[in-house]
Design a protein around this nucleic acid. Structure first.
Lengths: 205, 205, 205, 205
DNA sequence: CATGAATGAGACTTCATTCAT
DNA sequence: CATGAATGAAGTCTCATTCAT
């Protein structure tokens, strides 16, 4: 007769609750990419997740919680992606690779549209802003460490100062390219690649 | 003998109608920056513009028209800003200058937050996408022409191909920096400046 | 400096005020026919009358007053039309004639669409209902007098009772045809004519 | 395994959804009769239906859909009513009977006020116009078939041509009477009856 | 006399969220 | 656990009417 308290046992990664959360997030991601955080309604997400709207409230306190979870997930993916770029050749190739996957609509890569949406939203939503800041700090540190590490370990042996400023620049470039990808999905990759290779040759030589 | 039909005479730049439009756009810009296109309501804008919500519809067909007008205005400002960067020293200095103005909340410079909002919205709104595309084409052409022009005219004498790929890269960098500005408004400018100067020295030497 | 009291000298039929009223009514009639009483806005009427919306309030207290004036005018036209039918041949011919004029969009004949609109509105607007009732009473009396007048005077010499019930029927038929005209503007007139001639031959023989 | 997408199962005639639709339509009908299609607001209907305004949008896409549903329902009732008139005595009696029911406010009979409203609206709303046209065609065919059927089957054995023109006339008369009913709800029925009996005697003898 | 800018109420519609079943 | 009916607030937009100019 009375509702049991919503004791959703998180019970590890394989639990049913986790699967449901995953389903909701996957659906939400698709909706957010297509319509944006505001225009995507809970009803849209429920349809995409093939469950009732009410049920989603068992797994997420409200829409904002879903948005935040999506943001966190995307940031994690972004960091792991940037980590993969750690090697001079991979940087250019990796960016081009990701570009192609985006175009193909692969949901595992971070969607540039979603990245824009998150960034825009962060200018007004403190929770999202905090998440981005945390992720930024991690990325910055990793990039800087890579650039400062000795060449024998795949790095470039830059001083901490130079590494820091180069890291800032690299991140801006990657983000700028993401923005461009969102805006010009059928961009010709060849000139971009050659420009990037040139850039890295000069910047990290 | 017969009166003009009750429409709003646009009557040049000094007209009252134009002043009202300006008031609305200025208010809308503030609201859009603060809350985003979706979350800023017509009522919010009306309060900011100190007029009734209904009146705004004499000057703009609907909210979307206001959004579009803001977008066009911002794009024009962005282009004129990029044009000012045309000179190697100015590029770095100009970027840093703009950064400072943004921080100070100067409404004449393009707001990075608004730029993000526009870019995100463009992924779903065809009219905004078209406006960005048009503006992009202009910017690209101008940048490329600059890079390809002879050094005697302040350019770099690059071949068209190289100029094109460099222009693409430069735009991505500028946009990436805008994104960063939106996200990290109190970023330390010194490392950024040195990185940029370094970049230009190597890229456009 | 202060507005003079709105002393609109009615000054006979040729006054300027009367001309303005006429212009407004003519415009309103077109708008009401096209959009109905509710959907036609004061702004629509102002455009059609080629004057400002505010000016109309100098000649009519409010929209409702315009509606009422239109109704009265239409009713007068309807009565004069029915009066013209007074003669057995003219009845059929006159109806068919009116039908053709309606189709041609002649504004002097009563619009069936407007007649419907008025009738519908009368079921909820007491002022319009009263106007229709007054007009109805006149029409009824005229028709009945005609039917009861001796044949030597162009009538049918019916008893008052029979004349009354026949008048009721005739009016219903005319109204029914108006309704049909509104609904089926490209109705084939031939069968209708033959049916009407037949009807009158049998009913008023 | 997977739940159905959250739509409203129409599930036959006994479903809850159907009951709700019915409730809304019944409320809407009352409101439309009292205030007309335009003046009756969704809020009015919601109050009459004793539910929130928002809920109605689960059952009808928009106000226009409600209007259309009402129109269709009324037309169906009108056709079934006219079908009942098929027999010379019933025609007169049936009309008088309906007249009395209207007066009593019986919601099962078609409301003359609503009929007027529909007809007026049809002159500008293509969907309503189409519905009326469809219904008209059915009524016309049924009436004509009745008049042309042999007397042994309750008809009048008229030729198709004559039957067609008589059917047109009969419909106009019925509609004219409906209009009259709307306008003069306390009309004395006796003279009308005698006129109608007379008419049928002469027209269908 | 005439304009049309301005207002404010109210219309339709959407949507996050709750809760009885 | 799951549904989806239900609500209420809020959003966009229209329009009759007024009034300073």
């Amino acid at each position: 007769m009375m509702n049991a308290p919503p004791t959703i046992s998180t019970e590890g990664a394989g639990g049913r609750a986790e699967a449901q959360r995953e389903r909701i997030l996957s659906a939400a991601q698709r909706c957010f990419i297509e319509h944006g955080f505001h225009a995507a309604s809970m009803a849209d997400i429920a349809v995409a997740a093939q469950m009732s709207a009410g049920l989603m409230y068992r797994y997420f306190e409200n829409k904002q919680a879903i948005v935040l979870a999506i943001v966190e997930r995307q940031l994690e993916e972004k960091r792991s992606f940037i980590r993969q770029l750690h090697s001079a050749q991979a940087f250019t190739t990796g960016l081009a690779e990701a570009f192609k996957l985006w175009r193909a609509g692969d949901p595992r890569v971070m969607s540039p549209a979603l990245y824009l949406e998150m960034s825009a939203e962060a200018t007004r939503n403190p929770q999202i802003a905090a998440a981005l800041r945390r992720s930024d700090a991690l990325t910055r540190a990793e990039l800087q460490a890579w650039l400062a590490s000795p060449r024998s370990e795949g790095g470039f042996g830059l001083s901490q100062d130079v590494a820091a400023s180069r890291a800032l620049l690299l991140r801006s470039i990657v983000e700028g390219l993401a923005l461009r990808a969102a805006r010009e999905p059928d961009l010709d990759l060849a000139p971009l690649r050659s420009a990037l290779e040139d850039l890295f040759a000069r910047l990290l030589a």
